[in-house]
Amino acid sequence: MKVLVTVKEVAEVDDEFAIDGLDVDESYLEYDLNEWDDYAVEEAVQLSEANDDVEVVTVTVGPERADETIRMALAKGADRALRVWDDAIAGAEFLDPGTKAQLLEAVVEEEEPDLVLTGVQSGDDAFGATGVALAERVGFEWAAVVNDLEHDVEANDSSVRRELEGGVEELTDVEGPAVLTIQTGINEPRYASLRGIRQAQRKPLDVQTLDDLGLEESVLETQVELTSMYEPESESDAVIWEGAADETAGELASFLRDSGVVEG
């Protein structure tokens, strides 16, 4: 069986930052594997460890910079990686979930996985839509926000728990082939071992262009356009206690005593 895991490198913003045009200035961004995808990779690797003949392939839409993050996923146990990118994609104004789903659709058609795992959302733009949009495009069944997975490799069916609001979980049976969007906490993602990191250097990481995937540049034309980015006006009317730690702690202590919630 083949499991395809979508993996994104996401940007995190420093405490202090500046916006340059339509994004945060590059110098204030740090890149890392998307938190949700880390759990998706781990889930796939655990499936491959628990069953014979399970191949784990990761796919990333992203620039060369993402190779470092992709190698991390390989070091954690994925077998090989694909990275979709070319000048046209680099020049695209905005990769919305619909566009990404079209790129990933071509990869699914090429790879023909039995199961696709994605993260629930990416930590930066947080659309939370790519996985289900992909399922709809490729005609797979799906389940969103999965925090427990039992997969029957023979039948290619899954029994999942979907984490709903307010501490309620939904138990659902899903016919394969399926796309499951994975929620944090489903497992304990491993750290890459030194051996894993060494092995990862030798695992295949193939770059695929639009052309390779049989796609036209027109897939990048989107009806959703990013028009501005700005720091929201602070809604904060918090009283900020200033000073050294002993002073601010003193202020908080006085407040707690004065309000009568704490004695002593």
């Binding site: 947080a126 959703v224 356009e225 990013l226 980015m229 700005y230 720091e231």
Partner: peptide, 14 residues
Amino acid sequence: EQYGGKVETTVDIE
């Protein structure tokens, strides 16, 4: 919102 609520964006739908 984007980046965990640190910035806001506007997107136009054509």
